[in-house]
Amino acid sequence: MNILRLAGDMTHLISVIVLLLKIHSIKSCAGISLKTQELYALVFVSRYLNIFTDFISLYNTIMKLIFLGTSFSIVWYMRYHKIVRRSYDKDQDTFRHYFLVLPCLILALLINERFTFKEIMWTFSLYLEAVAILPQLVLLQRTKNTDNLTVQYIFLLGAYRALYILNWIYRYFTEPDYLHWITWISGLVQTILYGDFFYYYFLSWKNNVKLQLPA
C-alpha cells in the first residue's frame, strides 16, 4: 500500500471521527444531512459484501468494519438519540435522496466489469458514493451558521477523494495491469462535486472568515 492511499484512508477515517466527535460531545448534528449519512451507510453495505468472503488484509477488514459501524451509528444517533435528533435540520434537509439510488443501480446494471451480484453491488456503491455528498452540499448552502466541525468534516471527505485520485495515478504508473476506469471516473466525478466547496473553503481560510456558500 502506498502512502497516498494510506493518507486517503486516514483522511476518510478522521472525517468520520470528527463527525462522531461533534455528535457525541456537543450532542448536536446541526448542519449534517441525514440523507447523505443514510446514503453512505448504503454505500458501505453494498460495497463490503465481500467482507467475510474475500480476505485481503487485516487492515482492510478492520477498516471496513469501522466504516460500516460508524456510518450506522451516525444514522442511529441522528434518527433515534433523544437529544441529538432534536438538532437535526429536518426542514432544510429536503433533498430527494431516493432519486439518486435508482439511477445508480440502473447504471451499475448497465456499466460494470462483471455481471455478478457482488460486482454489480460494488459498482453501484461507487456510483452512489460519487453523488452521496449532494444532499450535504445543498444543506450547507441553506444553513446560515455552519459550525466549524461540519465544514472540516466536508473538507476531509473531499480531501480523501482527492488523495485517492493521486493514489490511482501512482498505482497506474507503478503496477502492471492496474486499470480501473469505473472506479476512476466515479471518483473523479465525486471530487469535482467538491470543487465549488473547496473554492469557497480556501477563500474563507485565506480571508479568515466563516465559510458560507452563496445561495
Binding site: R5, D9, F67, R114, T116, E119, N167, T183
Partner: peptide, 10 residues
C-alpha cells in the same frame, strides 16, 4: 474461474 475481481481499496 475469473468471475470475481479482487478489490483491495476501500
Amino acid at each position: 474461474e475469473d468471475d470475481e475481481l479482487s478489490h483491495d481499496e476501500l
